[in-house]
Structure formats: C-alpha cells, structure tokens
Design a protein around this nucleic acid. Sequence first.
DNA 1: AATGACTTCAACCGCACGGGC
DNA 2: TGCCCGTGCGGTTGAAGTCAT
Length: 345
Amino acid sequence: MRKPEPSGNKNNNSSNNKLRKGLWSPEEDDKLMNYMLNNGQGCWSDVARNAGLQRCGKSCRLRWINYLRPDLKRGAFSPQEEELIIHLHSLLGNRWSQIAARLPGRTDNEIKNFWNSTVKKRLKNLSSSSTTSPNTSDSSFELKDTVEARHNIPRRQENGMFSTSNYLQDSSPTSIQSNALNHMIRPFPAMLDHSGLNNMFGSNGFLNPSPSSCNMTQMGNNMVGDHGLFGEVTAVLGANIGIEGELFVPPLENVSTEEISYKTDQRALLHDRYNMQSNNNMSYLMSNNLNSHNISNTSMKAENGDHHHGVENYFQAELTVGEWDLEDLMKDVSSSFPFLDFQLE
DNA sequence: AATGACTTCAACCGCACGGGC
DNA sequence: TGCCCGTGCGGTTGAAGTCAT
C-alpha cells in the first residue's frame, strides 16, 4: 500500500495540479463511484477529470476494476475457486487477466496476489518439507491433501512450452523447485523411472494427458508418450480434480448485446446476485448459465444508451478472449480433460 | 508490552499493443 | 509510416496488519 498524499493536497485543485498517488480516500471513492454509476466508463482520463479527481486515468481505472466495481466478490477464496485458480494457472501460467475472466467477481490483481502469497508459499513449504524428508513415501507427506498438488501438471507457456522454473518464479531453477516438482509428479513414478524429471518436464513439451489429442510434434521428443502414461495422468487427475462435470470452468462469452445499467438500485441487485453466488460457489460454477454475466436476464435495462456503453465495454473486455492461443489451449484442454466442462464458443 | 519478522494486498510502474491522425 | 495517446497486463513495491518471540 502506498502512503496517501497529505490530505491538504486533496482539494487544493487550483494551486496544486499534481496528481495524487497512494491510497484512495473514501471521498475519492465516492466521487469515482458516483461518476461511474451515472456516466459509465469512457476515456479514463476524462473520467478522472470529470469526476473531479486529482488522479490519473490509469489510477481511476485500477481503483474501479480492483475495488469499486459493483460485481466484485469480496472475501477469501473458496476452496473451489482456489482449485480453479490452481488448475487454470497450470494451463495458462501467469495470465492473471485470463484466469480472472473465468472467476466471476475476482480481479486479476486479487488472483495474482493470492497466487504469490498463498499458493507460492505452500509450494515453498512443500519443497522445504521435501528437503527435510527425502523419503517421498513418508506417510506424513501431505501433498495429496493440497489442491495445488492435485493440479500442478506442467503447463504450457506462451510459446507452447513449459519449464520447471514456472512453479517458483522468484528464482532460477533450483533444487528446491526440483524437489517440489518431485512431489508434484509423484503420482507418476513410472514416468520418472523411465525418463527422469528433465525429460519429462523438458523445455519443449506440453504434457497432454490425452493420447488422442496429443500433439507429439509440439510436445517434442522429451515427452514420454510411449510409456502409456497419459492415460495414467488422466486417471489420476480425473480422480483428484473430480469426476466429469464436477468442475465447471466458466466460459468466456461476448455479451456485447446486453444492456446493462449500474444505477444504484440495480447495484443492490447485482450484490444480491453475487452474494447468492458466493454462498454456493460450486453450484454457481457448475451452473450452465454462467451467463450470470448475462445480466440482461435480470431485466436490467440501460436507462440511457449513451451511458451503458462503458459498462458494457467493461464486461465485454472482461469476458471476451479472442486470443488464438487461449482458445486453442482450451480446446486442447477440453479434449484432454474430459472431466472439465469447458464450453468454448 | 515491545519489537522484529513475516504476510497481505492496494497501488504503482513499465511495457506492449492497438487505434486514430 | 510514424507518432501520440489510451488501455490493459504483469511484475513489483511498500504500508499496514499479524504473528512470534
């Protein structure tokens, strides 16, 4: 958190044009919230100016997206969300915005922080416990009980590759990481026996648990597809992540046709909706209509066509993923992880 | 109670990208 | 074509909170 500017600067518009930095005051929040509710999102620098805020547009955008948005779900991550994050991270890497797009009400910043604090810490604990207890068959080993352990399969990177250093990114690959990975992949001892860690998690492969959709060219020659292990991986992951249909990953959808208004009374509606959802996250995630984003279903209509575009754009931006790699990846995933109900357009 | 270490998370920074001119 | 501007993203920072001693 940044130290707020001295409050004396706050309203001293005429004599001090310096933009404020640091924590937002409740007054600033009110100004931004009121402006956004009444005018919707436009050019952020205009928002900052017109709302009477001595902030840069970027800061306003961040504040709105990460804190003031009415559809934000506050509070701790549910185990289901945690599981989903870990799984998605194993697929997408540090693409926080894309992960966030699949976790309604959560922001990329929130997920990023969660990952960097909670999940990384657990992985570190995991690796340190592994150094003190080299016998991985030790019954005290708790990996099987941790959600991250269930999902830390090698993940594809932007270039379609993965490396061991992705799990603990704060340092170059070390024995710690190797130890952690050793734990993560314990379900596949045969794979290690035959190929070794480096071969399995080499720099030019993506572990695809489905033999049928396995692109051996892409995977490169370090993979061990000929050991019949993909089926085993599928079985293990299937058993741990859940049976088919248990885990639903919200699809990204373009809701550009929706008419949305954020008038105050409707905010309450949104809050109710999201409160309901947070009470039953899993059923929410499993809902076929994760078109809970489809807010038009709540009969919300824009009162002013000029006003709704900003919010609409926001939803559209949040929900739409047009990136070829992600779509390909998700298609790949949907075929490779049949127990995940990916619903891609 | 004091204090130092550790954790959390809001906010900033720099970069990349795309659109408009 | 190149420049400018707005936006979005991911990495990083650092104050506040919490925990351990």
